[in-house]
Write a protein that binds this DNA or RNA. Structure first.
Lengths: 182, 182
DNA sequence: GCTTCGAAGTTTAGTTTCGAACTCTTCAGA
DNA sequence: TCTGAAGAGTTCGAAACTAAACTTCGAAGC
């Protein structure tokens, strides 16, 4: 027990070996980094999902709460802004807000100064839910990184930030290469 | 232009600052690592999606092709195994296979030696699609990591693998702490 | 041999999302 | 003022997923 990472999933080492076998000319180190990154993220999302589920909210709802809290007091955003921020279509946002209003996590009202707009505002209950979720998440995250030395944390943070900047300011073209967007 | 990472999304630094403001007692370095990890993964998936879309397949289909190829010749798996491997319910797997059979990417047949089972086998067309996708993906990945020094690559790979092992062999309990499953 | 249990896959009902059409409001220009 | 255009949000229909019920086959026990 404990040796099988997930049902039917090969270990990272087995997967790298399989890639080498099936596709020539692949750098094992690159593939290791990319595969580990992807898996790690997946596992972390599962962990977050477990935690939020215990608070009676879904991962999707947690994302909305997060966006609202991080926008700062008075914790208000329009549906379109939320949709862009979360990468959803406006239609999906409408439905998601419907649910969250019904659960008392957010409040929806029409902006009287511009009657086309709608204001989504965090309720105190919604803010409390987010705080509870953050308490759980922060303990989990600290625990996850606990074995890393200060030097390793520094390098990891710096390198990931650099990679992120590279992806954010560039997008792959048809051939897969990253072109600077200027 | 090029300074706005994504529509309406704050920069990583702004987001960390917002976390510090809204939630006391958070380690900025931990949050930086976790946030960068999550964002980086999201951007990479968008990039992969763009590439596979160009080949006329979805990201979901690419995952199935990947599982089959990595299983090794003769590239056969049962629907249940595929579902477990991809983290889907058997029902979703049935439908996904339906589509892929219609597109000629995989072949479905009943196992005559055990008539409860079904065998999903990669077609040569499916294998070719995967190879094309891999060619694009590997260029993208090499390009993404191109600015990293050999030392940085080594540390990154090692640290990520260590973190992955920690999440894989342990699961957070109600309080968020990681317990060894033994 | 018959029965029961369990495993593999499909079907059905309900949820969440996307794409596109639609409504309502605001603003610019004749 | 009236009209046209654009933006914000919702509604509608279709796609993809989950959970649960169902079907079929195989294996074990009596």
């Amino acid at each position: 027990m404990g040796d099988i990472p997930d049902a039917g999933e090969p270990t990272l080492e087995e997967q790298i070996a399989a890639y080498q076998r099936e596709f020539q000319g692949l750098d094992p180190q690159v593939e290791k980094i990319v595969s580990a990154l992807s898996r790690l993220n997946r596992r972390m999302n599962v962990a977050y999902g477990r935690q939020t589920a215990e608070l009676g909210i879904s991962n999707a709802e947690w994302e909305v709460l997060k966006a609202l809290v991080l926008s700062g007091a008075p914790y208000r955003m329009g549906p379109s802004d939320l949709a862009k921020r979360l990468g959803l279509t406006p239609a999906a946002m409408t439905h998601r807000i419907d649910r969250m209003v019904a659960e008392g996590l957010v409040h929806r009202e029409r902006d009287e100064s511009n009657r086309v707009r709608v204001i989504i505002e965090l309720t105190s209950e919604g803010r409390e839910k987010w705080l509870e979720a953050m308490r759980l998440a922060s303990v989990f995250e600290e625990d996850l990184l606990q074995d890393l030395t200060p030097a390793e944390r520094a390098v990891l943070g710096e390198v990931l930030t650099r990679l992120l900047r590279r992806v954010e300011h560039a997008q792959p073209d048809a051939g897969g290469r990253l072109n600077d967007l200027e």
